[in-house]
Write a protein that binds this DNA or RNA. Structure first.
Lengths: 120, 120
DNA sequence: CAAACTGTTCGCGACTCATCGAACAGCCTA
DNA sequence: TAGGCTGTTCGATGAGTCGCGAACAGTTTG
C-alpha cells in the first residue's frame, strides 16, 4: 500500500481528448451529423468565431447532461475541438481537418441545413 | 355490407412507394447513409447501370428480411428508386434528384467511401 | 396445378441511443 | 472559505434500430 503524494499543485481538469481524423470512419462522421441537436451545434459553431462559443451558450432543447454527451460525440467524430478556459469549455469547428478527411461533406451538410432553415 | 368485386384480373404486387425529395429531411438523409449495409448498397448501385441490380443481387451480410428493411429506408430517404419486373425488384440511384435536394452530399459520401476502401 | 424464386411483413429479442436527475469536480468570486 | 457557475459522469428509462425466422404473396416455370 503506497502513500498518495500530496497534491501540492491543485489538480487541473483533465483536458478533453480529441479524435485523430484518420481514425474517424465515414459511418461515425455521418452518424454524428444525423442528429438534430448536433446539427444545430455544428451550424452555430460554424457561423461563429473560433473559440467564441462555450458549451453552455447554445440554444438547444436538452439539459446539460445530454448536451455534454452530444459534444463528446462531435469530438469523437473529429468535428470540433474544445479548450478549457476557467470554468468554461470553448469550441471551434475543425473545418480544415474534417475537410481533408471527408472532402465536401461538411460543406454539403452546412449548405443543406442553411437552405432548410431558409425554406421556412 | 357490400360485395367485393371479383378479382377478374389477377392483382399485381403493389409497387413500391417513393419519397418526394422536398419532404426528405437532411437528418433522414444522413441517417439513411450512416449504416454500413446501406452504404454498401448505395456504393454498389452507384457503380452499376441503372436498373441493373435486383435487391437480392447485393453481397451484404444480412438476410433478406433485414435487406428488405434497408431498401425501404433508402427509398424513404429518396436515394433509390425501385421497379418490379417479374418476381424481382430492380434499383437505380436517384442521383440527379438527390443532388438537387442535397448538393454535393452524395458525391462526398461516395468519394469518402471509395477512399476508405482503397486505403486497405 | 405445383414448385421454385424473390421480396415483404410480422413478431420477437438484443442492442444502441437520447434524455433526464443527481452527484460530483474544477474554477472563480465574494 | 463558502457559494455559485460550468461541465462531466453515473444510473435509469424509454424509444428506436437492427437482426432473425416464419409466414405470406406475386411471378415464373415445370
Amino acid at each position: 500500500m503506497t502513500i498518495d503524494p500530496p497534491a501540492a499543485t491543485p489538480r487541473h481538469r483533465t483536458p478533453p481528448e480529441h479524435a485523430v481524423l484518420d481514425e474517424v470512419t465515414l459511418e461515425a462522421a455521418l452518424a454524428a451529423l444525423a442528429d438534430p441537436v448536433r446539427l444545430t451545434l455544428i451550424r452555430e459553431v460554424a457561423s461563429a468565431q473560433e473559440w467564441e462559443r462555450s458549451c453552455g451558450s447554445f440554444d438547444v432543447p436538452v439539459r446539460k447532461a445530454a448536451l455534454s454527451h452530444h459534444f463528446a460525440v462531435l469530438r469523437a467524430a473529429g468535428l470540433i475541438e474544445q479548450r478549457d478556459a476557467g470554468p468554461r469549455r470553448f469550441n471551434r469547428l475543425r473545418r480544415a481537418e474534417f475537410d481533408a478527411r471527408f472532402p465536401g461533406l461538411l460543406d454539403a451538410v452546412l449548405r443543406a441545413q442553411a437552405a432548410e432553415l431558409q425554406k421556412v
